[in-house]
Design a protein around this nucleic acid. Structure first.
Lengths: 251, 251
DNA sequence: CCTCACTGAGTACGCTGTACGAGGTAACCG
DNA sequence: CGGTTACCTCGTACAGCGTACTCAGTGAGG
């Protein structure tokens, strides 16, 4: 059972950390750590072993210090996650894309997807109103720029970007969850459906749920054939972009 | 900081529970509990106090038994969550809707939305390949029926339903997260932006992130005016359905 | 009526985040 | 230069978690 966390740090404290607003005191011994080193270590652990493995003690071990030492640099685990998230978003290349809005939004979706695949733990941290760190701000600006000046209101621009981001988030999460289920259980989707066909038949599956059993079987087989998540992602993204295009065409 | 859980129960064991496949032994004392009573109690707690409050001890207290007693009925917390999820999905009315696919999918989205609003904890349980209990199967069948016979392949039908479901999931989760942030911090979005304007200005916000600061301010104000999540939901749903419509029009 | 499968639950283990406080270190001030 | 004082490190402790183990009590089948 995977534990998941929402950042949930005190927003004000997170902000101070994110923008490096703490006055470096002169008295006393030099700090052995920096917030950055802590964030890097924590991210390394979360990348390799998942969010559940990223405990304060584990991070401290990784850095060769006591667990409580971390609390000199970070108010708590929630704030640490906030900073981790912002740092990860700062990895986005934010390339300037030439072309129309659709090409730009496509790029936005793809870059976000790759970021999530690189840092799967991000998908399990609640990100509603994320702390406005430099990484998140830059990302938001970049994404809005894709739909700037195409005839949307400000609110619609925000909604369009949120729609694309939300889609990518959900799609990648589904793909990763599915992969993890396969890895942890050693059972592919196809095998799953086949193994439970007798059970479902006994229940009266085919009669009660004719469409579901037909579609489920087909989907299981297609996914087996490595047709897989790549195509599923493309399908959904195309629909989302088509939806935005339809809105623009109405104008 | 909220903990969250993925169902993650042993799929085989969850299935047995879901379909009630356990052979009721005759020897020994009558069981004092049923899986159903446990699921109901757990759901009640999760509804009222959130997923984090739903610990095994808490559920046991609610039922007036020892914590370990629950393990006589349920293999573990993961499987319990699986069953809770399936039971909750079984609450969907699954009304037969007359009309075209769009009207039907719209109904699917709305019913799912209300279910999530009634049981917010569902949004924080990972649901990829949820255990195929009776509730989930019936829901899947109902949703697929909305897009049956309109010219989509089986894989596309699954993808379309997943797209709508994913959208609703993300949208409702965002709305609930936002509401919780406001409740727990007592700060509205507008106040948030206003309170941090000096900070962001000092950073060089307006110069570095012109679009973001403009759109962010506007969105904050609109949301303040209770324009709010309802309209945001409608906008996104309309785009998603438009996207599917565009696909059908191409044929 | 005896037997024994089954139920209930107390105790305990290892894990979590983090509050508290003791003890060491280094820069400032007189 | 010596004392003060702010700061850093981290051992200990606490409440809470999921759950493995174990043992006593129960009640129906033979």
């Amino acid at each position: 059972m995977n534990q998941e966390y929402s950042g949930g740090g005190d927003p004000a404290k997170s902000l101070e950390l994110l923008w490096g607003l703490q006055a470096r005191p002169t008295r006393g011994p030099k700090p052995a750590l920096t917030v950055e080193r802590i964030v890097d270590a924590a991210t390394r652990i979360a990348d390799a072993e998942g969010l559940a493995a990223m405990s304060m003690r584990r991070v401290a071990d990784e850095l060769g210090v006591g667990a409580m030492t971390l609390y000199r640099y970070v108010p708590g685990k929630g704030e640490l996650l906030d900073v981790m998230l912002d740092s990860a978003y700062a990895e986005l290349p934010l390339r300037e894309v030439t072309g129309d809005w659709r090409k730009k939004l496509d790029e936005v979706a793809r870059e976000n997807r790759e970021l999530y695949l690189r840092h799967p733990w991000m998908l399990y941290v609640a990100t509603s109103r994320p702390p406005l760190g430099p990484g998140v701000m830059a990302k938001y600006e970049w994404e809005l720029a894709a739909v700037e000046g195409i005839g949307l209101t400000d609110v619609e621009m925000d909604a369009a970007v949120a729609l694309v981001n939300g889609y990518v988030h959900g799609a990648v999460r589904s793909a990763i969850d599915a992969k993890q289920v396969i890895q942890s259980s050693g059972i592919t989707d196809k095998e799953w459906w086949e193994a439970h066909e007798p059970l479902l038949e006994k229940i009266g599956d085919a009669q009660k749920f004719p469409i579901a059993s037909r579609v489920g079987t087909t989907v299981g087989q297609e996914f087996e054939a490595a047709y897989d998540s790549e195509h599923g992602f493309e399908f959904g993204l195309a629909r989302v972009l088509d939806g935005i295009a339809a809105l623009l065409a109405d104008r």
